[in-house]
Write a protein that binds this DNA or RNA. Structure first.
Lengths: 235, 235
DNA sequence: ATTGAAGTATTGTTCAACAATCCAACGACG
DNA sequence: CGTCGTTGGATTGTTGAACAATACTTCAAT
């Protein structure tokens, strides 16, 4: 296994004791989640139960179970007797997302005591992926790799629950990026920063890496909030 | 409003713009969640759909929506074609919960720049509550107050998402405590620690407070993991 | 004691129905 | 002209029953 092919969390060699067959609702939720973070549905759009359950080939009840999960994840919003809508994050949401990411990413980075660990290599491969995507001008993949980079940073905490929470936070963050569709402008400038953070981390300078990451988050938040408040003035 | 009556998050003076009427499934989930963190159901117990939906006066479909939510929160576990069971945390879960709590609580405390804030007073009233409950020998309330103390610590981060995540983590932690039913032994020794942390925090010594909290978490985790591994040897 | 084959009980999912509510169209009225 | 009820249609909220799929139990045979 080389350092660059860690783009899958599965360990194909050994099966888990109980391959938990997902129920129908969970599969639907997974599919909708992917569609949402891919930007398949525009923000604020209502998702009709009738149409979607027809489209997905499941019953209304099953679809509603999936809806409930995605609402809890803040990817959808629910209004009584009106239905579910694609979430439309505000600038306050952006601020809260970055507050959360500071909590999740910075201490994980500072606590990364052993630079040679598997988790650190995951950070490195995400950086590699991002640069490769940039060189090939695959902007969407570049955004994905950037998200994986930050997921890997949170992964340094070594906690399943933190990882899961971080996944949700990043999914919501992708929704934010889709509100203003320009992955190139919002991701490309940060790839060099990612590289620098990983270099410091791999060298064992977690404090320096954390300082870089803090500056990164400040800059990124400022850029996004600025763009958002401008957009909110219009709408 | 005195410092000791902040045991409610509601601000009864002003109504929220839209009091979001909870749907039936969410109400059922809320009720079951309360029952679970109160220890109404023993761990590993299966929750029969037929019996519960009869008991709660809702349909199976509605109950299943609530189940799905609580499974996502790790309070219930789901096994295909076998039903849902009350979660039975392992010692590894305990370790992960404490890893998570370190991530959530320590940076929030270190980042508490303004000691006079509302959020800091919330920490103080949780401490007061805990001591009052101890003096009255209300052990269950004492555990509740202790949880509220840590919730308030995480609240110092000022993030709605972090607060929500912390709520889940603490709910799961209460499940852990219920596995070994002895709130007095597990909570009482830490009340003095809580007081000390708040005193340091209110004095603006966030570093000192964080050091105390770190020691607190180490001790508490060690105590719980020890008790758990002993229990796991039997079962 | 172990194995294998019914039979039973419970969950997984769908469907159809009804009540509750929102929304758009329409008309009355100042 | 614009505002305010009313009305009718459309969509969601929730239920109950039905059937399929699977796990558990029982029991007989080896």
């Amino acid at each position: 296994m080389t350092a660059t092919d860690a783009h899958t969390d599965r360990t194909p060699g050994r099966r888990r004791p109980l391959p938990p067959l997902p129920t129908q609702a969970e599969r639907v939720a997974e599919l909708l989640r992917e569609s949402l973070i891919d930007g398949a549905y525009p923000p604020r759009q209502r998702l009709s139960e009738e149409r979607l359950c027809e489209e997905l080939g499941v019953s209304r009840n099953t679809l509603r179970e999936a809806f409930r999960l995605l609402v809890r994840e803040r990817l959808l919003v629910h209004q009584m007797h009106r239905g579910v809508f694609v979430a439309h994050p505000t600038s306050e949401d952006v601020r809260d997302l970055f507050r959360t990411r500071r909590v999740l990413e910075l201490p994980a980075l500072r606590g990364a005591v052993r630079p040679g660990e598997e988790a650190v290599r995951a950070v490195g491969s995400a950086v590699d992926e991002g640069e490769a995507a940039r060189d090939r001008e695959r902007w969407k993949e570049m955004g994905t790799a950037n998200m994986r980079f930050h997921q890997a940073l949170a992964g340094l905490a070594g906690s399943a629950r933190v990882n899961e929470f971080m996944s949700q936070v990043l999914a919501e963050t992708r929704l934010v990026f889709h509100v203003m569709d320009a992955p190139r402008e919002f991701h490309a400038p940060y790839l060099d920063w990612n590289r620098r953070i990983h270099t410091l981390l791999a060298a064992g300078d977690v404090t320096g890496a954390a300082d870089e990451l803090a500056a990164y988050l400040d800059t990124s938040e400022h850029q996004l909030v600025t763009a958002f408040t401008a957009r909110e003035r219009d709408a």
